[in-house]
C-alpha cells in the first residue's frame, strides 16, 4: 500500500475512535465517555510529545487537529460571549433578554464594520475591510497612547525617582542607587542617535548588564511556567495509566512506540534497498 493510503487508513481509525466516543457522550453513557476521554487525551498528549523523537504522523495528526479544534473553539466562545450578548442583545433586546441590555441601534455600526471585515474573502471588494481595520487601529491607538503614557512612562518614571540616601539604612540606599543607575543606564542603551563610545559607551554597557539580568528573570519565569505545564501533563498521563481508565496512557505509549519503531525499520529497509 502507498504512503497516502496508510495515512488515510490511520486517520480513518482515529476518526472512528473519536466518533465512538462522541456517540457515547451524545447518548448519555457518561462513564464510557470519561474512560474514552482519557484514551483520546493520552493519544493526543503523547502524539505532541512524539515530536521530540522526530516529526511523525502522530504529531502531524495532533497538530492539525489542534488547529481545527482551537479555531472553532474560539469562534464559538467569542460568538456566545460577544456577538450573542453584546451585539444581538443590544440590537434585539426582546429576542435576547438574557443579555440584560437596553436597545441601542448604534450597535449596527460594529455589525456593518464586522461584515466589511469578512469582505476580505471576496477579492473584488476586499478593500472595504480597511475601514474596519482603520476603526480598530484608531481606537487601539487612542486607548493605548494614553494608557501607556500613564502606566509605562509616568508611573514607572515616578517610581524610579527614589532618594539615593536613606539615613540609617545602607542597604535601602544601595538598592535605590542601583535602581536609579540601572534605569538610566538601560535607557541610555536604547538611545541610538549617538555612538556608544567613551563615558556614554560605559553607561550603555552597564545598562546592558541590567537588561540581561531582566531577560534572565523573564527566562527563568518562562522556564518555570513551561515546566509546571509539563508536570501537569505528566500527572495527567500517570492518572490515565490507572486501571479504572483501562491503562489508557500505558497502552497508547506502547502502541505508539511500536508503530514508530515499525515505521523506522521500514524507512531503514527502504533506504538500504535504494
Amino acid at each position: 500500500m502507498s504512503r497516502d493510503v496508510w495515512i488515510l487508513v490511520s486517520l480513518g481509525l482515529v476518526a472512528a475512535l473519536t466518533a465512538v466516543t462522541i456517540g457515547f457522550i451524545s447518548w448519555g453513557v457518561s462513564n464510557h465517555a470519561i474512560g474514552f476521554g482519557f484514551w483520546i487525551g493520552s493519544l493526543l498528549t503523547l502524539g505532541i510529545f512524539s515530536y521530540l523523537y522526530k516529526d511523525n504522523a502522530f504529531y502531524k495528526f495532533s497538530e492539525h487537529l489542534f488547529v481545527g479544534v482551537s479555531a472553532s473553539y474560539w469562534i464559538a466562545t467569542y460568538y456566545w460571549t460577544q456577538i450573542d450578548t453584546n451585539l444581538w442583545g443590544r440590537l434585539f433586546p426582546a429576542q435576547f433578554p438574557h443579555a440584560g441590555h437596553q436597545q441601542n441601534l448604534f450597535y449596527v455600526i460594529p455589525l456593518i464594520l464586522g461584515l466589511f471585515m469578512l469582505a476580505r474573502m471576496i477579492p473584488s471588494i476586499g478593500w472595504i475591510s480597511r475601514w474596519s481595520l482603520a476603526f480598530i487601529v484608531g481606537l487601539y491607538a487612542g486607548l493605548r497612547l494614553y494608557g501607556f503614557l500613564q502606566s509605562n512612562i509616568m508611573e514607572q518614571t515616578r517610581d524610579s525617582l527614589r532618594p539615593l540616601y536613606i539615613p540609617g539604612s545602607f542597604v535601602d540606599s544601595l538598592n535605590n542607587t542601583l535602581i536609579v543607575v540601572g534605569v538610566i543606564c538601560a535607557l541610555l542603551y536604547f538611545f541610538f542617535s549617538r555612538e556608544h563610545t567613551g563615558a556614554f559607551g560605559v553607561a550603555s554597557r552597564v545598562g546592558i548588564f541590567f537588561l540581561m539580568i531582566s531577560f534572565g528573570a523573564s527566562f527563568g519565569f518562562a522556564v518555570m511556567g513551561r515546566i509546571s505545564l509539563l508536570i501537569g501533563r505528566f500527572n495527567y498521563l500517570i492518572q490515565a495509566s490507572d486501571a479504572s481508565t483501562g491503562y489508557a496512557s500505558a497502552v497508547v505509549t506502547a502502541g505508539m512506540v511500536l508503530l514508530l519503531g515499525i515505521g523506522a525499520l521500514r524507512s531503514r529497509g527502504d533506504t538500504q534497498e535504494a
Partner: peptide
C-alpha cells in the same frame, strides 16, 4: 526586586515611548 526591576522598568519606559510615538 532590584537589578531586574531596573532593567524591566527601562524596557517598560522604552515600550511606552515607542507605543506613544507609533500611536501618534
Amino acid at each position: 526586586s532590584v537589578p531586574n526591576l531596573a532593567g524591566a522598568r527601562a524596557i517598560m519606559i522604552g515600550i511606552g515611548l515607542g507605543m506613544v510615538a507609533t500611536s501618534l
